[in-house]
Amino acid sequence: MTSSTVKEQIALAAERLFAERGLDGASLRQISAAAGNGNNTAVQYHFGSKERLVQAIFEYRLRDLNARRDALVAERCPNDLRSWVECHLVPALEQSEREGSRYLSFVAKLQQHGRRDVLAHLSPELLAPTHRFRARVGALLPGVPEPLRAHRIAQATAFSVHVGAEREQSRARDERVLPYAVHVGDLLDGVVGFLAAPVSAATLGALDTPMPYEAALPLHP
């Protein structure tokens, strides 16, 4: 067994346990055991800390997800809101359909506990597709003023994560779920409708109240 295989097994075991129990509910010793490693210090040896392990899970998943996103963008040349949303979200939804994947549940759990700090040390290369998505979608929402525009994009992303996580967990419990194509189509309909919804006069009026706000980079699949 190569070192890279051991690290991959640990990362996947950690993804599953973090998804089920949260960051504080899974110890490094439990993760080592779940990965089938008899060495109780295997996580420390390969990753150094729990925070570095969390970052490694993102790095492991985002490389493939981003490659799929780039491929979809190159293939479809998106120029409308739904196309951009589809190119960015579908790879994560595809990932959640794979046997044994708990990635969206893992991300959802981090969102619940406000752990956006885990993104701080990810490389700009891994975050580039998310920045691109925010910029392109933002440009397609000229009728939505800031800070509402950034807030909507962040909220739409968070909603998509939790919807995908719920389906992922239902499938793990062998519960009945909508056919995949219906699930994806309905989610995209809802996200696009939310993003493009007109801003009410009441909300515009509320914007007159000074409020410091900066939308954080969403924890994204």
Rank of each mutant, 00 (worst) to 15 (best):
R21M: 06
T2P: 03
V54S: 05
T5E: 11
N39S: 14
L53Y: 04
Q44E: 03
R16C: 14
G36L: 06
A42G: 06
R52Q: 13
A14S: 05
L17C: 06
L28V: 02
F47I: 13
R52K: 14
Q30F: 02
I31K: 01
A14I: 01
N40H: 13
K50T: 15
E20G: 04
A26M: 08
E8C: 09
G25I: 11
G38E: 15
Q9M: 14
L23I: 15
G25Y: 05
R52E: 14
G36I: 03
A11F: 04
A33E: 04
F47A: 12
A11I: 11
H46Q: 10
S3F: 07
S49I: 09
N37C: 14
Q44W: 00
A14T: 04
R21D: 08
D24A: 13
S27N: 09
M1Q: 05
T5V: 11
K7Y: 01
L53P: 02
A33V: 12
R21N: 14
T5N: 08
G48E: 09
I10S: 02
S3K: 13
K7N: 08
A34R: 02
L53T: 07
L53R: 03
G22L: 07
K50N: 11
A14R: 00
R29I: 12
G25S: 08
T2V: 04
L53K: 06
L12H: 10
E8N: 12
S3G: 09
G38W: 01
I10P: 00
S32T: 08
N37D: 15
A34Q: 07
R52H: 12
M1F: 02
R21H: 14
I31C: 01
N39F: 09
K7V: 02
A35R: 01
F47K: 09
L53C: 09
K50L: 13
S4M: 10
T5C: 02
S49R: 14
G22S: 06
R16F: 04
N40L: 12
G22R: 07
G36H: 05
A33Y: 06
R16G: 15
R52L: 12
T41W: 05
E8V: 11
F18R: 05
I10K: 00
A33T: 10
S3T: 09
G48D: 06
G25H: 05
A35I: 04
V43I: 07
S3I: 14
L17Q: 00
Y45D: 07
E51W: 04
I10T: 08
G36S: 12
Q55W: 03
R52S: 15
T41I: 08
A13T: 02
A26C: 09
L12Q: 12
A34H: 00
E51G: 13
F18K: 06
Q30W: 00
G38Q: 15
G38I: 05
F47H: 12
S27R: 05
R29H: 10
H46I: 04
L12G: 13
E15K: 03
R16A: 15
A13D: 02
A33F: 02
V54G: 04
S49C: 11
F47L: 09
I31Y: 00
A35N: 02
L12N: 11
I31Q: 00
L53N: 03
S32Q: 03
Q55R: 14
A35L: 08
A42T: 07
G38N: 11
D24C: 08
A19L: 11
R21I: 13
T5K: 08
H46Y: 12
A42L: 03
L23F: 04
Q9H: 15
T41L: 13
Q44K: 02
G22C: 10
G48Y: 01
